[in-house]
């Protein structure tokens, strides 16, 4: 029988910004949302995909093993350019138009400049890693966070992983966009000590226009979790020109006040540009939305706005 696997693109120990204490965060690949500012674009697609990191490449003249392995001829010799340390170097030119993510080129690349992002891992394999991190949870009130992408888009795997964590009495958090069928959330609720719950936008129309999916379901699910007695750690990415206005935050305040008793924390995450360089690695023409990060003053003002509504708030 084939074992249940999840498509995982990263596991991070000493994850300090994904819930309380020192945590291990398991990142599942694939997400129904398309936030234009997304800082982990490699988490969007559900399949394993080819990535490229030029700084690892030793150059076609020293290696060149990637040339000629692609059955669809996607890889050709690129123009000579300057490398990381200023030396002349020729990188492969990868045209992904015809790529079917077969992975042969990544296999040929010993330097892992071409590499496949997204591993199929069994629950056992992930638990092995978690067990090794367990001593670090003890004093800090930490545990495991299952994140993504959208981890609940791989519901069977996430559920099984959470169950296994609970058999070891490990604290669990589910980091979700909330854009999931209620039945899925209902199933994992008994095994999730906490929901890290993203609320990206309070305006339905704006939500759909910018992120690509309607926001109503997300708000509905938040209320349902609260009503069912779940704990919510709300995360608001503060985006310039999108949700950072005083008016928009009034809507947040009004909505969150309604479910105040279930909220353990509201975390304001200022937009940052760290993810920008990752887009080039994906070798797609996808564009990232780039803006100036919000100022500290603005972050502080928004924090105070929510605090005035009696909510516990932190920045970062």
């Amino acid at each position: 029988m084939q074992q249940l696997t999840g498509k995982i693109y990263d596991i991070q120990g000493f994850s300090v910004q994904d819930g309380p204490g020192v945590r291990t965060t398991v990142f599942l690949k694939g997400c129904p949302l398309r936030c234009p500012w997304c800082h982990s674009p490699e988490s969007r697609r559900f399949d394993t995909e080819l990535n490229w990191m030029h700084i690892r490449c030793t150059g076609l003249d020293a290696c060149g093993k990637c040339l000629g392995v692609c059955p669809r001829n996607c890889i050709t010799r690129g123009e000579p350019t300057r490398g990381v340390t200023g030396e002349e170097i020729s990188y492969p030119a990868v045209d992904k138009t015809d790529c079917d993510e077969c992975g042969l080129c990544a296999k040929a690349c010993k330097a892992t400049a071409l590499y496949m992002c997204g591993d199929d891992k069994t629950v056992d394999e992930v638990m092995h890693r978690i067990e090794r991190d367990m001593p670090f949870y003890e004093d800090s009130g930490g545990g495991v966070t299952v994140s993504g992408g959208e981890c609940l888009s791989q519901p069977a795997f996430t559920l099984e992983l959470l169950k296994r964590c609970k058999t070891l009495s490990v604290n669990t958090a589910v980091d979700t966009t909330g854009f999931v069928r209620w039945e899925t959330i209902e199933k994992v609720m008994p095994y999730a000590d906490l929901f890290l719950y993203d609320l990206k936008c309070m305006d339905e129309a704006l939500h759909e226009r910018v992120i690509g999916v309607p926001g109503g379901l997300i708000l509905e699910n938040a209320v349902k979790i609260a009503e069912a007695g779940g704990s919510l750690w709300v995360r608001i990415p503060v985006m310039p020109m999108f949700n950072d206005s005083e008016e928009h935050f009034e809507k947040y305040a009004a909505f969150l006040s309604g479910i105040k008793d279930s909220i353990v924390m509201v975390q304001l995450l200022p937009y940052h540009k760290m993810g920008v360089s990752k887009y080039a690695r994906l070798l797609t023409r996808e564009q990232v939305f780039v803006a100036e990060p919000p100022t500290d003053e603005l972050m502080e003002a928004r924090k105070q706005q929510l605090e005035a509504a009696g909510l516990p708030v932190r920045i970062h």
Partner: peptide
């Protein structure tokens, strides 16, 4: 700096070190 900032960062750092010592 951001990963160990503030009260919480200090607490997490302490936890990391004390765990290493316990190991």
């Amino acid at each position: 700096p951001s990963s160990v900032a503030g009260d919480e960062g200090a607490m997490k750092l302490k936890n990391l070190i004390s765990t290493y010592f316990r190991l």
